[in-house]
C-alpha cells in the first residue's frame, strides 16, 4: 500500500487556519491511500505490539542547508493512527483558556514526522508508538465499543488513569504505559517548541541586542534575594 508522500518544509504552525488546511490536505491524501482501514474496528483485532515495517527513506544527510531546512522523508501514519494520536495529544494537553490544544499547534503532524523519520534514534519510538496507537483503539473498542477518538472525556480519562502515573500503572499495562509516557514527552516537547509554546512559557530570548548583556532586571534580583534570605543566605554584592 502506498502512503502519503507529502514533503514538509518544516512545520511552521503559523496560524490555526493554515494549520487546519495543511492537516485537512494531509488527511485527505491519507484517506485516499489508507484503503479500507476505516473505523469499523475489525482491522484492529489481534494487533499486538508488533513492530511496524522499518523506514527506508533517506534522511537529510550529513551536510544539509541549515538556513533552509527541508524534511525529506514521507509521512507514514494512516488516517486511523492520526485520529488516535490527535485524540491522545489533546487529552495530554487540552485547550485551556487562551492556550490552544496540542493538536491546534500541529503536534499530531509532528508525531507523524517523528515516527516516520529514517533514523535509528526514532526507530524505538516508531516501534512503540505505532502499535501503541493501535492498542488505544483496540482497548477503547473492548471497553467502550468505540474508537478512542470517539470516547467521552470521562471514558478517555478512565483509560489514561491506568497508564499516566508511574506508581499506579494497572498491572499488565506496562507497555501501554511506556507508550503513554513517551507520547506525553513528545507532546510536551512539540508543544513548547512552537511560537505559541515559547509565548506560554514566557521565553523572550533569541533576540539580538547591542551593548553589554542586560542581565536580570531589579525585580528578578529582588526575587533571588528574598529566596536566598529565606534560606538563611545572602546575595553578596552580586547585583
Amino acid at each position: 500500500m502506498t502512503r502519503t508522500t507529502l514533503i514538509l518544509h518544516g512545520h511552521t504552525p503559523a496560524t490555526p487556519l493554515q494549520l487546519s488546511r495543511r492537516s485537512s490536505l494531509k488527511w485527505f491524501l491519507a484517506a485516499l491511500t489508507a484503503g479500507p482501514l476505516a473505523a469499523c474496528g475489525d482491522d484492529l483485532k489481534g494487533v499486538d505490539w508488533i513492530a511496524p515495517p522499518p523506514i527506508d527513506a533517506k534522511g537529510y544527510g550529513t551536510d544539509p542547508n541549515l538556513l533552509e531546512p527541508v524534511t525529506p522523508w514521507p509521512l507514514t501514519l494512516n488516517r486511523t493512527e492520526i485520529a488516535a494520536a490527535t485524540a491522545l495529544v489533546d487529552l495530554i494537553l487540552p485547550a485551556d483558556g487562551d492556550a490552544p490544544s496540542a493538536s491546534a499547534l500541529g503536534v499530531p503532524a509532528f508525531i507523524d514526522e517523528w515516527v516516520s523519520a529514517p533514523y535509528e534514534s526514532q526507530r524505538a519510538d516508531r516501534e512503540l508508538i505505532i502499535p501503541g496507537l493501535a492498542w488505544l483503539d483496540r482497548e477503547a473498542q473492548s471497553r467502550f465499543q468505540r474508537l478512542f477518538m470517539h470516547l467521552s472525556p470521562e471514558e478517555k480519562s478512565a483509560m489514561a488513569d491506568d497508564l499516566a502515573y508511574p506508581d499506579r500503572i494497572k498491572q499488565g499495562l506496562e507497555k501501554p504505559a511506556e507508550f503513554f509516557a513517551r507520547m506525553r514527552s513528545l507532546t510536551i516537547g512539540a508543544y513548547y517548541s512552537t511560537p505559541q509554546g515559547w509565548a506560554e512559557l514566557g521565553y523572550v530570548g533569541n533576540r539580538p541586542s547591542t551593548g553589554p548583556y542586560a542581565g536580570p532586571p531589579p525585580e528578578a534580583v529582588d526575587h533571588v534575594r528574598r529566596a536566598v534570605e529565606a534560606l538563611g543566605l545572602k546575595l553578596d554584592g552580586l547585583e
Binding site: H11, T62, P64, P69, E113, W114, S121, S193, T194
Partner: peptide
C-alpha cells in the same frame, strides 16, 4: 519549529 524533528539530534 523550522528544523526537521525540531532540531533533535540524529545519526546525520
Amino acid at each position: 519549529w523550522e528544523a526537521p524533528l525540531r532540531g533533535a539530534g540524529t545519526s546525520d
